[in-house]
């Protein structure tokens, strides 16, 4: 299970990606309560919240080691 690189919480990746429905024109919708993500250096990082993601984006090297 991936961890939020900022706060260290376990992330339910499949939950974050699970489709909860479709937009009016057929794109998958996801549950906003399952956290968010970011595509960074060719890889997806998952976060429990936007709050953690903004910290990550301010200083990715701090969190990617």
């Amino acid at each position: 299970m991936p961890k939020d690189p900022v706060c260290g919480k376990d992330i339910d990746e499949s939950g974050a990606r699970a489709s909860t429905g479709q937009t009016a024109h057929g794109a998958a919708e996801v549950d906003p309560n399952m956290g968010t993500r970011s595509f960074h250096n060719g890889q997806w990082y998952y976060f429990c919240s936007m709050d953690c993601r903004t910290k990550f984006l301010a200083s990715p090297n701090t969190y990617t080691g």
Binding site: A27, A28, E29, P32
Partner: peptide, 14 residues
């Protein structure tokens, strides 16, 4: 890009 293209995911921001 058509929104129905596979691989597109939408997450609401209220």
């Amino acid at each position: 890009v058509p929104m129905e293209t596979p691989g597109i995911t939408v997450r609401p921001l209220w």
